[in-house]
Simulated scan of single mutants.
Amino acid sequence: MSGSAAEAARDPVRTGSAVTITDVARVAGVSTATVSRALAQPDSVRGPTRARVLQAIRELGYVPNAAARSLRRGRTRTVLIVVPKRANPPFFAEVLRGIDVTLAAAGYSAIMGNLDEDGARERQLAELVFSGHIDGVIVLSGILPRIDDRSILEAAIPIVSACAPIDQRGYSVLTDEGEAIVAALHHLIELGHRRLAHLAGPDGNFNAETRWNALKRFMSGQTEPGITLEKLQGQFTFEGGEEAAAAFLALDPAPTGVVACSDEAAISFMKALRAAGRRVPQDVSIVGFDGIEFADYCEPALTTVCQPRFLIGETAARQLLAFLDGNGPTERHVVLPNQLRVAGSSAPPPA
């Protein structure tokens, strides 16, 4: 596939117009009919030819016109929502509600597929997409179901990701989490804290890496002497907060301010510290991330970064509905603002 052909076909993406099946055909060096057959009836197209078509689709970020597809095979008015294994239920519950309410208002039903540990469910979900029984997919946290070496991107149906991108060519709904977690750290610095810690999420996770990298950039630009930031490895879960607390209690001197990767982790971290005799916020201030309902009902109430969870789901659903209406979203990447909410778990450090 020549670089000039691919570059020319990508021009519509840069100017905001949609990549067409003609662009895919030109880059792959085949007819538009061959592209259609490669997507709808892959067994009818020779392996090398189909591989060129799929490579062009991936390079260009092509999404077929949903209105045209519906004329060919009829709509099911069903959308698949892919949730990662061991998803954070308190966080995702409101995101899912935003998706469901918006899809239902447009006359669509939703099927939720939770990716399991052994991959069997992942294969089932991918087969469901390739079967043609799904009109579109919303993927949470950027994880795509696969069958062997084929991801559902190759099914060429509309896909929108929420909370984490699939790739830069895809359509996604994100939040300004890097800026937001820096605001949380800055809140503790303004209160007077100088020894700080970040209870991080799992290695390799998009959200965890985005937040930690934003904190590192902020710290590299710090000119005020004496401010330090320790990284505590953890998870987004209640269990992750408990495990991080054990590592924190072994530090000497211990940080006086902690920014956690999630509210779940912050709440269990706070509980473990209090059980060890540390007072919150008198000895240690803690800031969470997510704005889940539990944050209001722990003691003390948790200072946290509130993500617009319902709006994330609603916006992702509207992005997908724009595809299904045949128009396509006006923005490739939507970034929603988060908000720091100060409560009882943060205060000036001990004298």
Rank of each mutant, 00 (worst) to 15 (best):
A265F: 01
A275I: 09
A295Q: 09
R279N: 11
R279T: 09
I292K: 02
D296E: 15
R279F: 03
R278W: 15
T304C: 11
V259N: 11
P255D: 05
D296A: 14
A272F: 01
C261V: 14
P255E: 06
E293M: 10
G257D: 05
S268D: 02
I267W: 05
D283A: 10
D263N: 10
S268P: 00
A260L: 08
E299T: 14
R278K: 13
P253I: 02
T256H: 04
R274S: 12
K271Q: 14
V287F: 00
V284W: 04
S262C: 12
G288F: 00
S262G: 11
Q282C: 07
S262E: 13
M270E: 07
A272L: 04
C298N: 12
D290V: 03
Q282T: 12
T256N: 00
T303P: 06
T303I: 09
Y297I: 15
V259M: 09
F289E: 10
M270A: 04
S262T: 14
T304Y: 11
T256M: 02
F294H: 14
Q282R: 12
E264V: 00
R279H: 10
R278V: 10
T256F: 06
K271H: 14
V284K: 00
C298F: 06
E299D: 14
Y297R: 14
A266S: 05
T303L: 12
A275D: 15
M270L: 14
Q282D: 15
Y297Q: 11
M270K: 07
L302H: 14
A276C: 07
S268F: 00
V280C: 01
F294A: 15
